[in-house]
């Protein structure tokens, strides 16, 4: 389980988080919804300790990750896969090397086992043909899927997705949504997805929280979204309904 307790964060004079309280049980697919600049990515980075809170605590599996030595934090991070908004693939490495890196660095598996695991996750994201390509040769959607494969290869308990469907075409976007659902329901991975894409949100979420003004303004199960009367949340729902009407 992941828990954020009264998390505050400011950058200079800008207060981004003003006391976020959030509990993410194992096996859940939580979507953090919010407008651009609401602090969603900042919140996500707190969960892996890439950003430390000014005040408050971040607890992963019972451990306050900001009060442990770096070596222990690295061990906890091995249980968490992170898919960055810009994919963050290593430019100088091929797709295979990018995906294999967490396993190679761990040093627990032999070469053939690493290859088998890499092929398995690349197959999952339907990119087994792109094995030897360099990141510069991939499209935006392919890069994102390689990033997901890399996040999954070490079989983490949690996967955090930062805007997984932003800037990619609707078809690839749907494929990524399916993948997130598959991993959550079939493999049991706990997923935390940050997005402003309401269509994706309603496809994949078990629970949705709205981050606004630095706090969690709405916290609702997916089946109850239509009952939420928060005006900002309703704006998102309105966009979804408009899209549905066009369809």
């Amino acid at each position: 389980m992941i828990e954020l307790i009264d998390v505050h964060k400011s950058f200079g004079k800008k207060q981004v988080l003003r006391g976020v309280n959030l509990r993410i049980p194992a096996g859940e697919c939580l979507v953090i919804l919010g407008r651009s600049g609401a602090g969603k990515s900042v919140l996500l980075k707190h969960i892996v300790g890439l950003i430390q809170p000014d005040r408050g605590r971040v607890i992963v599996e019972g451990v306050d990750i900001n009060r442990i030595p770096e070596s222990k934090l690295y061990k906890i991070r091995k249980n968490i896969g992170f898919v960055f908004q810009g994919s963050a693939l290593f430019d100088s490495m091929s797709v295979f090397d990018n995906v294999a890196l967490p396993l190679v660095e761990e040093g627990l598996l032999d070469e053939s086992e690493i290859r088998r695991r890499v092929m398995e996750v690349l197959e999952l994201v339907e990119l087994q043909e792109a094995l030897n390509l360099m990141p510069s040769e991939l499209s935006g959607g392919m890069r994102k899927r390689v990033a997901i494969a890399r996040a999954l290869v070490a079989q983490p308990k949690y996967v955090l997705y930062d805007e997984p469907t932003t800037d990619i075409d609707p078809i690839t976007s749907e494929r990524i949504n399916d993948l997130i659902i598959e991993l959550n329901t079939d493999v049991g991975v706990t997923s935390v997805v940050v997005t402003h894409d309401i269509h994706s949100t309603l496809r994949i979420a078990d629970r949705i929280v709205l981050l606004s003004g630095g706090i969690i303004k709405v916290d609702v199960k997916r089946e109850h979204v239509w009952e939420v009367d928060d005006p900002e949340f309703q704006e998102f729902i309105k966009v979804f309904k408009m899209l549905k009407n066009i369809e």
């Binding site: 091995k78 968490i80 960055f84 967490p102």
Partner: peptide, 8 residues
């Protein structure tokens, strides 16, 4: 950041 997240 990605390296850090992988525990590297």
């Amino acid at each position: 950041d990605s390296l850090e997240c992988m525990g590297i």
